[in-house]
Nucleic acid binder design. Sequence first.
RNA 1: GGGUAGGUGGCCGAGUGGUUAAAGGCGGCAGACUGUAAAUCUGCUCUCAUUGAGUACGCUGGUUCGAAUCCAGCCCUGCCCA
Length: 393
Amino acid sequence: MSPEQQLAHLAAGAAKVLSEKELLEKLRLGRPLRVKLGVDPTAPDLHLGHTVALEKLRQFQETGHQAVLLIGDFTATIGDPSGRSATRPPLTRDEVLANAETYTDQAFKILDRAKTEIVYNGDWFRKMNYEEILRLNSRVTLQQMLQREDFRNRLDAGQEIRLHELQYPIMQGWDSVEIRADVELGGTDQLFNILVGRDLQKEEGQPQQVVIVMPLLEGLDGVRKMSKSYGNYIGVNDPPQEMFGKLMSVSDELMDRYYQLLLGETRDSAGHPMDAKKSLAAKITSRYHGADAGPAARADWETRFSKKDLAAAELPEIGISSLPADLTVLSLTAHTFRTAFGMEKSNGELRKQFIMSGSVQLNGEKLIDPAAPVAPQPGDVLKLSKKHAVRLI
RNA sequence: GGGUAGGUGGCCGAGUGGUUAAAGGCGGCAGACUGUAAAUCUGCUCUCAUUGAGUACGCUGGUUCGAAUCCAGCCCUGCCCA
């Protein structure tokens, strides 16, 4: 590919490229560019929001450039204040390292492991002494930091900003110096941090990195960005059925967004929105679970939700022998939620919401008395809610 | 260091001695309707138990028959001043 073709390919879908001109110049150097993507292992699981930038990194990789995946093991113990209205609780080092492990494993569902350089910023930050930290800090002014929207907002709203949070952009910027990054990728919320990297590189006499920021992917609620802490995410490791199901629950508007950001396509507005959504869900499920997984999840989903044929659907199974003694509707419901779905529900919640509302059904028959004894047989289907059902074996 | 405002349930936010487990909103969950969409409607939303009980309004003590509400000390945050 010519530099010009590369440029078009690599800039596609970005919210902002600073600047295309600089990127073109770098591409014309004819050497592999060092493309940095920093990941913040504050949560172990990668979700589709992360994949937007990872996909872009892969495009660079496929075009012959060097992907540098920076694990922010040190910075994660601070917590990136980006886009946050409150201080984030810090993680311990062990938590961070454990997260980083699963994180990279999942990242390599997208990236080519053999061609990816992985670096940990703890490697340099842990060695810094106070003198060096002061020197680094002296290069940035408070005013510069306060240009950042989220700091500014918090300041204006009278919310606390702890000083260590101000360090985050500086540290992220220093990472770029250490890596000698030619390009840094990130979400739009990373723009400021990435720009700090440019400043620091300039001071160090390095060529400045090109900034490519990708749009932020909204989470399942369609409002806030996808994030583990909002609980509105689709994990890369979510099982196929769950992934498919979550995608089916998004609004039509959000579906269009997902088409654009995750598939790089525009949704065909001719067909029924539901069909478009099924197609989106199948494609994404296939992407992370293999080509067969999407169609399989789709067929399964249709059996279960379109035809409402629970008897024929793939369901989690629960052994009758594992059930507690003196089984009542209440204890059966609690046990099933816990073992099949890992959900702890209070008795009041189970009683009032699930049982007495008629949500809990055994083979389609409502079990509305929490205290009533039940004796499920092998093959019975226990439905807890529209989205939760199991087969007893 | 001084002054001042404040700290209420996941969040926001009422509440200033007693029907206050604490109005209202948001969020969340369940149901109806549907396309597991949107919109709408209904119910639930501290915990345990069948009516009932326990725990809860920054923390610790105190006043009182009774406190989220009054008093004292402490901790924390914002703002103004130094």
